[in-house]
């Protein structure tokens, strides 16, 4: 591998993510109950658990798509305290550090593939058109989709769309990436293409938090596994160790259910 296009060079190297004592409730229902997770710079944390366990909500709190009620979120040297009013400036500053990939891709259908990747670079980083297009094309090439640049995203398969969504986030040189069930909407064979890109990204040293049901990916790629249920972390540690020998009965039940599918 010659040059790492995926991870930013120099000052903007990947950052660690620290979630401390995070809490959130909808009405009287506690969805996140005093959650603390630390992801070292370049670390890959997989977040698993039954639906309704709060794992997606937790992920969405990291870039403040959900507003936590209490706790702190730190990305690199930037800390946001929940409960206080968060200014638009702090919000954008935090989101600039963090890229996110959604289960449903969420590419902008009114823009071409290239424009999807170029527009945020221009608006968020203030890059010129040429620079933004060059970066976009280089990244698209990297995931094997340079020839799709001038198509509309709907013309692309799900797996292609998700790789474009990853490229769109990476073009902004985030210091950490969040993945919210990135392969759940995809056929297994198509999901493989996406997982391959994520593997490469992890290998390049990107800090990643991945909500997933892909147990093999969690075991092979992540270095830390967090198991959630009912808004709490019930178990965390080495992925292979937990999968081989879960300490909690709840984890054991969840794992056997997922693996039997």
């Amino acid at each position: 591998m010659t040059e790492s296009l995926f991870t930013p060079a120099g000052e903007a190297a990947t950052a660690g993510v620290t979630i401390a004592n995070l809490a959130k409730s909808y009405g009287s229902h506690l969805v996140l109950d005093d959650i603390s997770v630390t992801v070292r710079p370049g670390g890959v944390t997989a977040l698993i658990g039954p639906s309704g366990s709060g794992k997606s909500t937790l992920l969405r709190c990291v870039n403040l798509l959900e507003t936590p009620d209490a706790g702190t979120i730190t990305v690199g040297s930037r800390t946001v305290h929940a409960g206080k009013k968060i200014s638009e400036r702090d919000l954008l500053a935090l989101r600039r550090q963090v890229g996110m990939v959604f289960q449903s891709f969420n590419l902008f259908p009114n823009l071409s593939v290239l424009q999807n990747v170029v527009l945020p670079q221009r608006k968020v980083l203030g890059r010129g058109r040429e620079e933004a297009e060059a970066r976009a094309l280089a990244l698209l090439d990297r995931v094997g989709l340079k020839d799709k640049a001038h198509q509309h995203p709907q013309r692309c398969s799900g797996g292609q769309q998700q790789r474009i969504a990853i490229v769109r986030a990476l073009a902004l040189e985030p210091r950490a990436m969040l993945f919210d069930e990135p392969t759940s909407a995809l056929d297994p064979e198509v999901g493989v293409e996406v997982l391959a890109v994520m593997r490469e990204l992890a290998h390049d040293g990107m800090t990643m938090i991945v909500v997933t049901h892909e147990m093999q990916f969690a075991r092979d790629v992540s270095d830390h596994l967090v198991v959630m249920a009912d808004g709490k972390i019930i178990e965390e540690g080495d992925p292979a160790a937990i999968m081989a020998e879960p300490a909690q009965e709840r984890t054991r039940r969840f794992l056997s259910a997922v693996l039997e599918r």
Binding site: N106, F108, L119, K123
Partner: peptide
């Protein structure tokens, strides 16, 4: 998800409205 994606990318309100 369109608005969320725009937010997650750090696009401002006006850009999100006008371009997305």
């Amino acid at each position: 998800g369109q608005r969320e994606a725009a937010q997650a990318l750090g696009l401002g309100r006006t850009t999100t409205f006008l371009r997305v």
